[in-house]
Every structure is written in structure tokens, then in C-alpha cells.
Design a protein around this nucleic acid. Structure first.
Lengths: 242, 242
DNA sequence: CGTTCGCTTGAACTAATTCAAGATAAGTGG
DNA sequence: CCACTTATCTTGAATTAGTTCAAGCGAACG
């Protein structure tokens, strides 16, 4: 697959003419990183913009005191580090590969030139950041106003959408995620996550395992996420009057 | 004050040449809104970009179920609604005047033209959105990992920075904010805010009133915000050895 | 002067955390 | 293959931070 072909797949570059894509491709270089390693760390000077072409990575933010939250996952054809387009900027978050990842990379200076040369790109970049902003806003409101169980349910649904694999038994999440990780995604502790997941398992909504969750009943999980306050822990058997 | 002069004050337009500023100013129209009214509502089509020239407004986000959070305040020379530069976009949040506000406004179409004409503006817009994103990220982490008291302390410090007026007794926050408002800024209830503020009042850190807070001891408030876990509720009198 | 709205505070409650102990599963090396 | 080690997960019990509800206070406002 040529670099241009990869760019066409990517929402950020889509619909640019071939000349533009070729120019853009000329400034890109391939980048590869193993699972567990970081594409960049929060606080480092933002020198590089990436487009993932293979593998998934997680978006982390940590406080000066070392506590961290997981803001989400990104996968193929997603962009990261657009902040590199801004002079003197630092990465506001860290990006850690959770699988072997391949990416295209642009250095800061040529990226800025490209954005000046193709104003549409700057608009796209803005749209991208705005999109992330809206997502984050929703996460924030969710955290501020909703209960843990619901937040965990939503996080699982997001994972299903991003990394769900349909199997005979249900939908498997194809990324290894510890209870601790899920806790960091939802602003709670690993213990609470464990209890919630165990509870769901008893109700047949999921099957849990070590760093693994299998969603067996998407509808009920969705109901929890949407807080259709399940008065029926298991679907009622049709029974006598009243 | 001419429109151009106003634009020069504004970080978004700063350092553009006069021709550019004149062109930009030509597309602006003045806008005025009374305290309590909304410049725009979340979910509406984003038709207008604003630069506040006078007064302050608060940034709100609400859930489909009607719960809302306050993301912050903006004041003179700050921009809002840049999302209008994106076609078909909706405002991702609401902006409510908390004082009589004056603003300059640009409609979506001319704004897009201006951004295409002056690529630097597109970069500025991105920088702006990125900045907000980083702020929100920090709010998010704070909410996920920190205690209420600390969050309230930080919110107050932000308010001091944005709307603090030095007086003989201390720093007064010049915006009327109910306990409910502070609760929505920190992800807690008005009762908890009330208890915390009362507690601080007993320690002499603040003086509280109806929709009013006066910070008397900024240092101790900062200590709480930074969690220098105050083992000394009041500063120790110099005392015997050890 | 009465009504409204915002604030405070107590008391009961609950969701979630924390700590601790043990179970389970996955590597590791002999 | 099995013991050993390590990491993850589960669960109970105690605790706590924060919420919720209810009642009353007091300043502002018409």
C-alpha cells in the first residue's frame, strides 16, 4: 500500500487532490513501535504528528503526582499529536501502543508548512480537535454526574465499538485490559470495577477473565449504560397475574 | 474604540497586519446581550463566532437528561464559538452571559472565508481549541482523581484569577456565584460546597456570603488546592523546641 | 411586610474506597 | 512437567466521603 493510499483512508487527509497528497506523503516517514512502548509522553516537546496505520494505542493523561487516567483508545487511520503543528507546544497527553503499531510520522516544521500551504488541512485539524473536545466534554459530564456502574458500562460499550470481535459466545474485546485499566478509564478503583463486572457475570451479561471481558448480552449492558434502571435483574419469566 | 483596535487586543487576531484586520473587521457586527441570556445554546447549529469585548459569560454543558456542568468562565477579549468555522457544526456547549455583555460577531460563511484567506488564523483557531482541550483534560483528571475539597479550592483559585478584585479584606470574586454554581463547576452538590466553604470560614480562610466569596488567606487556600495536607489548621504559633 | 431565594446544618444513608486476605491464572526456570 | 514466582482478580469487612432529605435561618426584593 502506497503512502498516498494510506492517506486517502484517513479522515484527516481524505478528499485532497493527488498532487496535495503526494506532497504530503513526501514529508512523511514510517514509524514502528512495539506494544507497551510510548509514541510520545505528556510534557515532551511536540515534535511529531502521527497517523496510525496499524495497531492500537491508548491515550493517557497523568497528573504531576503520578495518578493517571485513560482518555481512550485510537486505532488505524486515526491521527495523534496534531499539537505538533503549534510552535513550541508540548504534548498534552501520552500515547502508548497496546499492540505492535505502525504509523506515518511528520515532523513539526514540515507539518506547519503543509498546514499553511493547504488551509483546508488546518480546518480539518480544527475539526479533529473539536471532535475530541466534544468527546472529552461528554466524558467529563459523565464523570461529574453519573454513577460508577453506568460509567463502566459505557466504557465497555465504547471498547466493544472500538475493539469488539463477534464470536459464538458474544463480543470479545480484543485488547488486554486489566481491572485497573478499566478503573482508570472510568475514574474509579480496580476493586469497584471487579465487583461490578462480577455482578454482571452473575447476571449473565458478561463473562470475565484475566484482562479479558466477553460481552454476552449487549442489550442489557446498553440498558445499564442508558440507565433504564433495570428493575428486572434477569428477564422475568412470564408469570401469574399482577 | 474602533473595531480594529478591539481586534488587536484579542489574542486570536493579534499581530495581523492592518489590511487584514480591516478586512476582518468589515465582516464583524456588534452584539449585545443582557445578563442571564444565552449567546448560544448547546446543540444549535453553530452560525456565529464571537469575541467578547465587555462582560463575562459562563461556559455550560448539559446532558440530554438536563444535568449540567459549568466548564468555566470567559471574559473580555476571549473568543467563543469558533466551531462556527466548521460546516454543519453544532455548538458543543452553551454560553450564558453573567453580566451585560458586548461582543463582536462573525457569521459562519464569512468566518470560513477569512480562515481560508489568512491561514495563520486557522492555526490560531487550532491553538485556541487545543488550549481549551488541555484545560478540559486537566479538569477531567482532577475530577477523576481528586477530592471535593481540593477541587473546590482550585475552582475558587481559578475564579480569583479570572474575576478577583483586591480589597482591604482580601480578594473578592466579582461574579455572583451560588453554591449550586460552584457545585456544578466541581462536580458536587450545593450542600457539600456549603459545608466546605463554612469550614474554611471557621478557619478564617474565606468570608462567605450570599452568592459571594471573599478569599482572605490565599496562601492557605492554595495549600489546600495543592494538597499540602494541612496538618496545621491554623498556622502554628512559634513554640517550644522540636 | 411577607415572600422568595439562597445558605446552613443535622441526621440518616449509601455509594464507593480502602485494606487485607486469599484465589486464580500466567509465566519461568529447573 | 512441576514447583516457584508473579501478577491479576475476587471478596469480605470496615470505613469514609459525599449525598440526600428535611428543617430552619436570614438576606434581598417587590
Amino acid at each position: 500500500m502506497t503512502t498516498v493510499a494510506v492517506l486517502q483512508q484517513c479522515r484527516f487527509f481524505a478528499d485532497l487532490d493527488d498532487t496535495a497528497l503526494t506532497t504530503i506523503a513526501q514529508h512523511a516517514y514510517p514509524y514502528r513501535i512495539s506494544s507497551g512502548y510510548y509514541l510520545f509522553h505528556q510534557g515532551e516537546p511536540a515534535t511529531t504528528f502521527y497517523v496510525l496505520t496499524q495497531g492500537r494505542a491508548r491515550v493517557l493523561q497523568s497528573s504531576p503526582e503520578g495518578q493517571q487516567v485513560i482518555l481512550g483508545l485510537i486505532g488505524a487511520h486515526r491521527e495523534a499529536g496534531i499539537v505538533a503543528a503549534i510552535e513550541q507546544a508540548e504534548y498534552p497527553l501520552s500515547l502508548q501502543a497496546v499492540e505492535e503499531c505502525h504509523a506515518l510520522a511528520w515532523d513539526s516544521a514540515p507539518l506547519r508548512d503543509l498546514l499553511a500551504q493547504y488551509p483546508i488541512l488546518a480546518l480539518r485539524a480544527m475539526r479533529m480537535v473539536t471532535g475530541r473536545f466534544v468527546q472529552l466534554q461528554n466524558l467529563y459530564r459523565e464523570l461529574a454526574t453519573e454513577r460508577v456502574e453506568r460509567r463502566v458500562a459505557r466504557a465497555l460499550l465504547r471498547l466493544v465499538a472500538q475493539a469488539g470481535e463477534h464470536t459464538a459466545d458474544g463480543i470479545r474485546i480484543t485488547i488486554a485490559l486489566s481491572r485497573q485499566d478499566i478503573g482508570e478509564m472510568t475514574g474509579t478503583t480496580l476493586y469497584t470495577v471487579s465487583r461490578i463486572v462480577s455482578g454482571w457475570e452473575k447476571q449473565g451479561i458478561v463473562t470475565a477473565g484475566r484482562e479479558r471481558v466477553l460481552v454476552r448480552d449487549l442489550a442489557r449492558l446498553t440498558a445499564i449504560a442508558d440507565d433504564l434502571a433495570s428493575p428486572t435483574p434477569t428477564p422475568d419469566p412470564p408469570c401469574a397475574e399482577q
